[in-house]
Amino acid sequence: MTVSAAAARDRLAAMVERGGALAWGVADADAFDEAPEGFRPADLLPGARRVVVVGGSPPRAADWASPVHEHLETMGTSDRINSLGLKTAKFIEAEFGYYALFVPPGVRRGNRPFLSVALAAELAGCGSRSLAGPVLHPEYGLLFYSAVITTYPFPLTPPLAEPACPAPACVDMWEAEGETPCTRVCPLGDGGCLDGRIEDGRLVERRYDAARCTSRVYTHWIPGFQKGLELVLDQDDPEARKMVLYSSHFTKTLWSMTYAAQSQGQCWECMRVCPVGAEFRDKA
């Protein structure tokens, strides 16, 4: 079936928006220079030309309002965007007869994702990287993303001309106080993970202690399981092993790995205070 690239783009738009995407875009598969070799689109799909990115399913306003801190850490919503990614891949193959490969979530060697979906989202103009880490959509702020690599030459959507971070309010705060809402809530110099510098209203430096963020917040998921297993095997006493295995921490870890699955978000305290998308995190 032959359709113009523009018509194909419109059909794709209708499909992903119906499927719940709040943002979507198309990146050039050759633009992933900053990704290491072996982790670029053509490494996953020979002949790759585009990467279609869909974004959405952020935590709902009620998730942000919950006083139970484990809630955000365990009740993730990113699986919904992954299922839309899968559907998008199927749609492209069935409708246009071109290869479309859903980028699996999860990691390959070196704990590295198969393709950086954050980079794909930036290149596709869905958002820009923030001081706090996540790619921020200019309107919605934090979104989850899923990517599909395809040989179909959809028209490209350019990266954002203006970055979403820092927000004007953060620039003002930086100028007055030398920090931003996210660096204040989780400061690198004070047991936290974030630091950075803003010059002329632009983010020019960012420091993020990923290892600390992982150990502070990914307490229930794969790292939690590995930590628990290590602890179990370090015990010589069978009773002590049993105690760790049946502990609430280990039990929660198993639940989160299987049922809650990919929903192991961060604590997102840095996002809770971010002005970008703040109105969507608040409801009556």
């Binding site: 699996p104 979530p105 999860g106 990691v107 390959r108 060697r109 070196g110 704990n111 998921w221 794969i222 399981f225 590995q226 297993l229 290590e230 095997l233 370090d234 790995m257 299987t258 699955a261 990919q262 192991q264």
Partner: peptide
């Protein structure tokens, strides 16, 4: 203990756990 620790945090084991968690059916 140290060898065990490196096996627990190895790429292979992490990927396997990730598959249990992320890919499930896949």
């Amino acid at each position: 203990r140290e060898r065990r620790q490196s096996m627990i945090y190895s790429d292979f084991f992490t990927q396997s756990l990730s598959s249990l968690s992320y890919y499930k059916e896949s």
